[in-house]
Design a protein around this nucleic acid. Structure first.
Lengths: 218, 218
DNA sequence: GCAAGCTTGCTTACGACGTAAGCTTACGTC
DNA sequence: GACGTAAGCTTACGTCGTAAGCAAGCTTGC
């Protein structure tokens, strides 16, 4: 029986790379491992992708393309809110992606589409170009920062109270009095300790709205 | 002449590691390179540090300790603003640090001190524990996100207009109409394209103040 | 029908990396 | 001067990305 194997292609390589990163994180995405996954030697992959960097750029664009854009008919605040939440959700499904996204310049088509859509929403809502630019940058800084912090944090929100109880003694001294008290609040169930992404999103959106309404005419 | 060399120590290793990262980025910080820098073989370093991860944790705490905390007497908004700007400035001096900071849980003493200070400022300004917790988390998400985006962006703000001019033709089609127009605005000098960190900081701080003032009593 | 050339994948190899295991050397201290 | 201990060195293993060249099969032109 001769080896009958679906032929490789850039597309197949990228799909396998995405699956690999999703299942084992960024560290498990090596050219050798990727080759093994496709039943092929590592070097064979270089027929279809220039190098590992191209693989990363490719799967990052695939991830960004998953971010759901709401129909532009929506109220601009709802649309922007939706956009932020959608990005967070997608990144949660691909937790290896945000660190990579942030450490490289991403100008893939999906990212450009995402930005262009956002600018369109803001312009449609009456923002000046200057303010629209500031607005989406501020939104994205927050969303990426929130997402990264959340993904790097080793404790699930559901376990905050329990963890706070268990570690309270570590803050027993009076070196960090406020953290100690905050930890106590969480341990006693008086504060969840879990800032939802919408807290900051709405805070920023309300602020942007106010700026739009008070901005000198452009 | 016998080899007379200052003896190694954890401190000396970390100082050299910090210098190495500052001068050549995170990639140039390898155990072999670090050893060479100290006139020693890589394996000798393991007498003074447990492993590379300990080196990273150590120099990250050194970086965080550089973040200037304003005297607590200040107006809370000014203090929080100061804190954000100070963090950004420090990270700009150590651009290799933020990606590492975000990809690991950092509980070094400097970080704890930084958080405790922030909570103190907010509590002193009349924020509830819940809102104070949300507040510093929102601030930090923004500051980290802004910093990372800024550090990863390959163009200096001073070159925005020139770069926009040079690359305008890439957006010529009507696939990204809003980006094309925004780029034109920047190219023509009608918009700097440079969102200062204080834009988002003040936006968030104003929003937090409003929430504090309207929050039901705790 | 068959040779020429192109495509696809394989083999081998190089110079990095972090670090485990064990060795050598030098320096107190008694 | 013997001995315990600390500091640094040597060697080695398994990993990584990828350069260079080779082998086999498919496509095309005559």
């Amino acid at each position: 029986m001769p080896t009958s194997r679906a032929p490789l292609s850039t597309r197949r390589v990228l799909q396998a790379a995405l699956a690999l990163a999703d299942s084992g994180g960024a560290d498990s995405l090596t050219m050798r491992h990727l080759g093994r996954e496709l039943g092929v030697e590592a070097m064979s992959l270089y027929r279809h992708v220039a190098n590992k960097d191209a693989v990363l750029a490719g799967i990052l664009d695939m991830v960004v393309s998953e971010i759901d854009l709401p129909e532009p008919s929506k109220d601009w605040k709802a649309a922007m809110r939706h956009r932020g939440v959608a990005a967070f959700r997608v990144f949660t499904l691909h937790p290896w992606a945000p660190p990579l996204l942030m450490s490289r310049t991403n100008t893939g088509p999906s990212m450009l589409r995402y930005i262009d859509f956002t600018l369109g929403v803001l312009r449609g809502a009456g923002f000046s170009w200057r303010l629209a630019d500031y607005a989406w940058n501020t939104m994205d800084s927050y969303v990426y920062g929130y997402t990264l912090r959340r993904l790097a944090f080793p404790i699930a929100p559901a376990d905050y109270a329990e963890t706070a109880s268990a570690h309270q003694h570590l803050l027993a001294g009076d070196r960090y009095p406020h953290m100690a008290e905050l930890t106590r609040q969480v341990a006693e169930g008086r504060h969840s300790g879990d800032p939802d992404i919408t807290f900051g999103l709405d805070l920023i959106l309300d602020g942007l709205e106010r700026l739009r309404d008070t901005e000198p005419a452009t």
